[in-house]
Design a protein around this nucleic acid. Sequence first.
DNA 1: CATCTTACTTGCATTTTGCAAGTAATATAT
DNA 2: ATATATTACTTGCAAAATGCAAGTAAGATG
Lengths: 136, 136
Amino acid sequence: MKKMKKRSDCPISCSLDIWGDKWSLLIIRDLMFSKKCRYTDLLKSAEGIATNILATRLQALEENKIIEKSDDPESKSKGYYKLTQKGIDLLPILIEIHLWSEKYFPIPEDIKTILIEVKKDKAGFINKAIEELAND
Amino acid sequence: MKKMKKRSDCPISCSLDIWGDKWSLLIIRDLMFSKKCRYTDLLKSAEGIATNILATRLQALEENKIIEKSDDPESKSKGYYKLTQKGIDLLPILIEIHLWSEKYFPIPEDIKTILIEVKKDKAGFINKAIEELAND
DNA sequence: CATCTTACTTGCATTTTGCAAGTAATATAT
DNA sequence: ATATATTACTTGCAAAATGCAAGTAAGATG
C-alpha cells in the first residue's frame, strides 16, 4: 500500500492525509457506534462500499494505528477489527460532525435523540463513551 | 459541476459528501484562520493545490453554501471568498481535529500555543471565534 | 465430502486528480 | 497610449484512485 505523502506540517492536513477521504470516517463510525467489527459487517453498511476499497482503507487505517485486526479465538476464518485508542480519540470529531449536520440537514430521529443527551453535557457524554469504547 | 450523490441519511456520510476530500477542509481552514480570501492567496497555501482542483472545490463549496464569492468594490478584477455561517459553524470540527492531531503528531509551536488557550475554555474560545468570524 | 461463509484479490472501465499551458478581463508602468 | 503584469480562472492530457464484477483460498457447516 502506497502511503499518502505528507503535504505539510498543518495538523488539519496531516489528519486528512490519514482519514480524509470519502470512506475512512464511515468505517470508523461503524466500528465506533454500530460495533460492526467483521469485514462482512462493514461491507453491509448503508453506503455500499466496494470490497476492494474497504480492503485498502482497512489496511491504511491499520498502518496508521487507527484500527487493529484481531483473530477470533472461536474461529480461524473469522477476524475482527477494532479501534485503537488513537481511533477512539476521533470520537469528539465525529460528535461535532453530527452536531453540524443536525443544524444544516434533516437527520434520522434516533440520532437526534442521542444528540439531545450530547448537548446536555458534551464533555461528560464524550468521556463516558470513550471509556466504554476502551473497555471492549 | 456534477454533484456528489447522497449515499445515505447518515449525518457523517452527508457531511463527507460535501467536504470529505483531501482539499475542502484546507480551503475552509485558510478562510477561517489565515483570512486568505482571494483565489491566488488560496493557491499559495503550503500544500500546493492545483489551480483546476481549487476552482472545482470552490464551486462545490459555494453550491453547498459553505462559502460565498463577493466582488471587491475597489477593483473589478479582484474577488474574494468568505465563509457563510454554515461554513463558520465548521469551526468546532476543525478545533477537534487540531486537538486530536496534537495528541498524536508533532505540530507547529504557534498552533500549540493557541491550543493551550482552547483547552482552558473550549466553549468560550469557540463562541468568541465564531462571533469574530461572523463580523467580517 | 460437498457446499457455504469469510476475507479478501484481480482485472478492467470510469472517474478524479495533478500538472502544465493557455486565456480573458482588468490593472499598472512607461 | 501602449506594453507588461496580475487575477481568476479554463483546457488538455497523463497518472492515480475508485467502482464494479468476478474469482479465490482457507476454514466452517450440513
